[in-house]
Simulated scan of single mutants.
Amino acid sequence: MNSRLRPADLAREHGLSTQAVRNYERDGFLPPASRTPSGYRVYTEVHAAALRAFLALVKAYGHATAGGIMHAVNTADVERALTLVDRGHEQLLRDRETLNTVRAAIGSLPIGAVPEPAGGARTVGELAHRVGVTAATIRAWERAGILVPARDRATGYRVFRAADVRDAELAHLLRRGGYPLTRIATVVEQVRTAGGTESLARALETWQDKLTARGLAMLDAAARLGAYLASRS
């Protein structure tokens, strides 16, 4: 584990530039490198394991979370690192559950009016809270034609009914899947008018593939992170 490696040695394995490797060290994603008397960085197999772990984590969890995990490990806060990993798995599970719920509902989407829940219509804030987004996001979805709320005749305020809640939940799922607002508006409009669910079904299949890929990436990242932790002991 103590063999000396140059920045170029680490970079070559992943097709990176040596500057990228130095930047990762600077940002705390790799442990600090020792220096030769002339000031050159000296990396080891521990650094190589750290770089493999970081890049695998980026693929599985995204750059910000991957960086947080590596910062935590490199500052000996393993519990924090594991908490971030757990949160990523929790989000994946929630996405799977939401996807399965939407898929199960495709064959029985109501035509015409959707029965209102006991609580009645919702405001912008109430809908945002239910879906787990900001009120600004709800307004952006409305501007994109994804949501078409009614207006309260007395106050002029937007009121969101059961069908709007359904459309917002579908929009949230598809947005997390990387779909642009224009595409989401098309899918939701088809559901809203009950004119067909083929586009929705295709979108869900694509999202299923992405969830599977993310799950597999998490398995690989866990192995790489485990190897890095072992190399530090």
Rank of each mutant, 00 (worst) to 15 (best):
L170N: 00
A136W: 01
P149T: 09
R35K: 10
T212Q: 07
T137M: 10
V102A: 05
I69S: 03
L30K: 07
A33N: 08
F54A: 07
L82P: 02
G62T: 06
L93R: 15
H129A: 14
H129L: 07
L127I: 13
V73D: 00
T186P: 02
D152T: 09
L82I: 09
L82V: 12
G132H: 02
R192D: 00
M1H: 08
G195A: 11
T83Y: 03
A76C: 10
R41F: 07
V188R: 05
D164E: 11
R35Q: 02
I138R: 04
E79K: 15
G107P: 10
N23T: 11
I106G: 08
G125Q: 04
A171K: 13
A128W: 01
E13K: 15
N100R: 14
L93Q: 08
Y157D: 00
W141E: 00
T44I: 06
A60Y: 01
R4C: 04
A230W: 05
P37I: 13
R122C: 02
M70R: 11
I184D: 01
V46G: 07
W207N: 06
P115N: 06
Y157F: 14
L109C: 10
E45N: 15
L99W: 09
V188Y: 04
A8H: 12
V78F: 06
R151A: 04
G39Q: 07
D86H: 13
K59I: 00
P117V: 12
D27Q: 15
H129I: 03
D220A: 15
A113E: 10
R232L: 12
Y157I: 02
A105S: 15
L5K: 15
G119Y: 07
P117Q: 07
A81C: 09
K59S: 13
R224I: 00
P115V: 08
A49Y: 03
E126K: 10
G39D: 02
S231W: 03
E126W: 09
L225F: 12
A162G: 10
G39M: 05
A163P: 02
R232P: 04
L93D: 07
V78H: 07
A104P: 06
E198N: 14
L181E: 06
P32G: 08
L147V: 11
Y43P: 13
G39W: 05
L16I: 11
L99Q: 04
S199T: 15
L147F: 10
A118N: 05
S3F: 10
H129K: 14
Y24C: 09
P180Y: 04
V187W: 01
